[in-house]
């Protein structure tokens, strides 16, 4: 057998290179080198069996997740989910039954869904904080939000023009959040963290 523990052939060539070319015609060196020819012969069966194994495993209908496994994994994730901060939404009036709060994650979902409506734009990290109209002052009893501040990172396609995108996105996010949550959005800071190929 021409193959050895070192992975190098007698002619000095690396077996990796022979392997990389095994499913093609021998190159100029291999066509005349006895070491490479012997190595190709040693590897030919392994190469075709390897290709077949990839296909066989892919088509093997026994190799599927156990029924319910996916649901179980997702259920665990949902139980342990990191929902971010809890944002107080409404200032409780003295006669109200209690305060209304929303998780940062829930607002972030609305923001990301809005991003998904734009071609070639993907919303990534999203932070949401409560803004009270008089900064520095302790919120009134109940501490409800008078508005929200959103920080959002994006990746956009290389052909997307960012200034018009940002204008449109801000408008849509503000409308969507206010419609669903009932609190206006005071600011939306957008960070384009990546440009991807379309």
């Amino acid at each position: 057998m021409a193959l050895s523990e070192t992975g190098r052939l007698g002619c000095g060539r690396d077996v990796d290179d022979v392997w990389a070319n095994i499913n093609h015609e021998p190159d100029k060196h291999e066509a005349t080198c006895p070491d490479c020819q012997a190595a190709r012969a040693d590897l030919a069966g392994l190469a075709s069996a390897t290709t077949a194994m990839v296909e066989t495993d892919r088509d093997d209908d026994r190799l599927v997740g156990r029924p319910g496994a996916l649901a179980a994994i997702v259920a665990i994730a949902r139980t342990e989910v990191r929902r971010g901060r809890t944002l107080p939404l409404l200032t409780a009036s003295p006669d109200a039954a209690g305060q209304v709060t929303i998780s940062e994650q829930a607002v972030a979902s609305i923001v990301r869904e809005t991003c998904d409506g734009f071609d070639d734009v993907e919303g990534r990290r999203c932070r949401v904080t409560v803004v009270n109209e008089q900064p520095g002052q302790a919120p009134a009893s109940g501490g409800g939000a008078t508005s929200l501040a959103v920080q959002l990172s994006l990746t956009v396609g290389g052909s997307v023009r960012i200034p018009p995108l940002v204008t449109e996105l801000r408008d849509r996010v503000a409308v969507a959040v206010e419609r669903r949550v009932g609190v206006p959005v005071a600011s939306i800071a957008i960070h384009v963290e990546d440009l991807h190929d379309a």
């Binding site: 409506g117 734009f118 071609d119 070639d120 734009v121 997307v160 023009r161 200034p163 018009p164 995108l165 204008t167 449109e168 996105l169 849509r172």
Partner: peptide, 8 residues
């Protein structure tokens, strides 16, 4: 410019 915004 706004016309260049990606369409939903």
């Amino acid at each position: 410019d706004a016309d260049d915004a990606p369409r939903p």
